[in-house]
Simulated scan of single mutants.
Amino acid sequence: MATNRPPGDGSSSDNDSFGRQVPESVIEAQQLVRTHSKMERRKLLRYLGVGTVALAAGGAVLSQISREDPSAVAAAMNDLGDGLKMLGTNGALTVSWYAQGKDTMQHWCDIFGIELTWIDGQGDGNKQRASLDSAANRNWDLAGVTPATAGTIVDPVNTMAANGTGVFEMTSNIGGPDDRVNTLSSITQSSYLMGYQVGKLLFDSVGGRGTVINTRGVPGGSDEAGRYEGFHAALKEYPGMQLLTEDFARWDRSRAQDLWQSYLTRFPDISVAYCQNDDMAFGAMNAIDAAGRTGIKIGGADGMPDAIKAVQDGRMLATVRHSSCQIHSLPVILGVAWKLGALDGDIPPKIDVLGPVVQKDNAASVAFMQGPGVLYA
């Protein structure tokens, strides 16, 4: 899109407030922001860049490019997804990580003007399947999907993809080992590293000698399997650590608390509690506190706000940030760019996001980056 005047003609509007020459591309971007015509949505997104949009957290950064009307930026971003419909679903909103994911996807859909419909997996693959079966043939532009149970929702997901929906798999495998699932991309994070890194910290905290219990999530998913493998890889490096038992609590705080009440009766000496997510870690912590037991080192995963505070307070040794915000925002951000044809090349079949181990020294920064108004890390 051409500007109404040649670049560098000496007019004050071609210079910023410090008198510096404004590049032609920025002048054109300013013009696009001011008009935000639907015809120019693709070009606007190309100028701004998907990464810039993601980092803008709702447009605060982008407002810097519109000197005449900063408020036009929010309108321009909202116009990018105008008329698009998106379906979102994940494991169970009773799990804090999944609930934060839904809030994040809604946040970014609101920014882009996308209509989001949400299906709660309710921790039950059959219920999630029934809801998706009835929704699969509706007119969806985009979908972000995490299965409650691997292998149960392959057919409705493939139906959506066949109808032209851009489907993003989020964090855990939709299909089983022999299933073919038609997705644009799988947005995930290394669960193996989550189990390995926190496991090593826990074992080091007791000098590599003691006993440990592993509390697991939902069987069959790649996120649970990865954490299990990472934890056991770490355990092999510490011959002085004895694994007492491991059971599935299905990511659920109450189930974990019930399991740990029985463990504390069965095992008089427990050195370390490794839980595959923070909700289960709090279930274990509640049981430990109620039993009056002390000295058990607790580690989790997901890096949720209450777990970060527990790390800061010394109630948990460590957690690791499993970036719900990135995993649930990227299907929106990349999906809009894909629909507008604003990406150079295809979206990779797998996109890895990163999350740090959370200890006292970095807890505040991790909490900030997933806080209200940011919802980025």
Rank of each mutant, 00 (worst) to 15 (best):
G91T: 00
A60P: 00
V95T: 11
W97M: 12
K102I: 08
D103F: 12
A76Y: 11
L80W: 02
D103T: 13
P70V: 04
G91Y: 00
G58H: 09
A92H: 07
S63Q: 13
T52Q: 13
V53F: 14
G59E: 06
Q64T: 12
E68R: 11
G101I: 05
S63C: 12
Y98K: 09
A57G: 12
W97Y: 06
A92T: 11
N90G: 05
Y98A: 15
L84R: 09
S66E: 15
N78V: 06
D79S: 10
A72M: 03
A60Q: 05
V53I: 11
L62M: 11
N90I: 01
L84G: 07
N90P: 04
Y98N: 10
W97V: 02
M86V: 07
M77C: 08
S63R: 14
K102N: 12
G101M: 11
Q100P: 04
V95I: 14
A57K: 14
R67Q: 03
L80D: 05
A54T: 03
G91N: 10
D103H: 09
G91W: 03
T52N: 11
I65S: 01
S63M: 14
A72K: 03
I65A: 08
P70H: 00
A76E: 03
A56W: 15
T94P: 14
L87P: 00
G83I: 13
A60T: 12
D82T: 15
A76K: 08
V95A: 00
D103N: 14
D103Y: 02
N78P: 06
L62I: 05
A74L: 15
T89E: 01
G101Y: 06
W97A: 07
W97C: 01
E68L: 02
A54Y: 11
T89L: 06
L55Y: 15
A57Q: 15
A56R: 08
A92N: 13
A54G: 06
G58F: 09
S63A: 13
A60C: 01
M86C: 02
A75N: 09
L84W: 13
Q64R: 14
L84E: 05
I65P: 00
G59N: 09
G59C: 03
S63I: 13
G91H: 06
V73W: 05
D69E: 07
G81C: 04
G101W: 05
A75L: 11
Q64I: 15
Y98M: 06
A60I: 10
G81W: 10
G101A: 14
V53M: 01
G88F: 07
Q64A: 13
N90T: 10
D103L: 09
I65L: 11
A72T: 02
D103P: 09
L84Q: 14
A92M: 08
V95L: 10
V61L: 13
M86Q: 02
N90K: 02
G83K: 12
L80H: 13
Y98P: 00
L93S: 12
A72I: 09
Q100D: 03
E68C: 02
L93G: 10
G88P: 01
T89H: 02
L87I: 02
K85L: 15
M86Y: 04
E68F: 01
S71D: 04
I65V: 08
A57L: 11
K85S: 15
T94H: 07
A72Y: 13
